[in-house]
Simulated scan of single mutants.
Amino acid sequence: MSRRVRWILGGGLALLVLGLIGGPLIYAAMEEDAPPARTVEAQPEGVALTPETDGTWTVAAGSSAGYRVDEVLNGADVTVAGTTDQVTGQVVVEGGDLSSAEVTVDIASVTTDSSRRDGYFRDNVMDVGTYPTATFVVTGPVDLPELTGTPVTVPVTGELTVKGTAREVQAELSVVRTPEGVDVSGSVPLVFADHGVEAPNLGFVRVEDRGAVEFLLRLAR
């Protein structure tokens, strides 16, 4: 074997070893815990709040949704969150009660701090070409407490559809009136296997088998 061939083969092997060992280490070096989820905020005292809550509300600009999961990366526990502002939906309040609500999230646009993770999530985990969206639908009327500028907790029963599979879930929403409308935040528990989603296990990184879908909705008329 010539010296040139040995050099090419040796260089290729070295690059392969660096990719297998150095890649996960570089990935780990970039990794930090995700910031806390966005939630509703109490309004300042004396501010003029939206005068009426009955009616039909739509998800407006400033809303966001996504997922939050825990993973083990090279033996270290890390929390990962992906978000998108591509959220649509409608909420109906009648007689002071939540009559219906449906929220749709564009899964294909959800991003984290890692483009490699996002590509794997979209193509290998969620198959967004076939299942581009996820939905959360409140399945029955919900009694609402009086809504003020102070957030209140509202338990709801809903149907979460991920990757084409719907499951009943329980969630707690935080709701507050604002000068512009109504803000709602919450976290819906998600067990991956319930929706035919296989939690990634790539050796150097292993994702837990459950997580949450979280959202902050700015509702406007």
Rank of each mutant, 00 (worst) to 15 (best):
G10I: 05
L16R: 10
L16S: 12
V17N: 15
L18F: 15
G19Q: 08
G19Y: 10
P24K: 13
Y27K: 11
Y27E: 13
A29K: 13
E32V: 12
E32L: 08
D33E: 09
A34M: 05
A34S: 13
T39V: 15
V40L: 03
E41Q: 15
P44I: 10
P44E: 15
G46A: 03
G46Y: 04
L49F: 06
L49H: 07
E52F: 09
E52Q: 15
T58M: 10
V59K: 00
G62N: 02
G66T: 02
Y67R: 01
R68D: 03
R68W: 00
V69F: 11
D70C: 02
G75K: 05
A76C: 01
A76K: 14
T79P: 04
V80Q: 09
A81T: 05
A81Q: 06
G82P: 00
T83Q: 12
D85Q: 12
D85R: 09
Q86Y: 07
V93N: 13
G95N: 11
D97A: 13
L98M: 08
L98P: 06
L98A: 06
A101C: 07
V103D: 06
V103K: 04
V105Q: 01
V105I: 15
D106Y: 09
I107R: 00
I107T: 15
S109Y: 12
S109P: 11
T111V: 15
S115M: 13
R117P: 11
D118G: 11
D123T: 14
D123R: 14
D123M: 12
N124F: 12
M126F: 13
M126L: 15
P132I: 07
T135I: 02
F136N: 01
V137I: 04
V138R: 02
V138S: 03
T139Q: 01
T139K: 00
G140T: 03
E146I: 12
L147S: 05
L147Q: 06
L147C: 06
T148P: 00
T148C: 02
G149S: 06
T150M: 10
P151N: 09
V156F: 04
T157C: 04
G158L: 00
L160V: 00
V169E: 10
V169P: 00
V169R: 07
E172N: 15
V175P: 04
R177D: 07
P179N: 11
G181R: 07
V184T: 10
S185T: 06
G186R: 02
G186L: 01
L190G: 02
H195D: 01
V197Q: 02
P200M: 04
N201A: 14
L202N: 14
L202P: 08
G203V: 03
G203H: 05
G203A: 05
G203S: 05
V207A: 10
R210V: 04
G211M: 03
F215S: 03
R218I: 09
R221E: 14
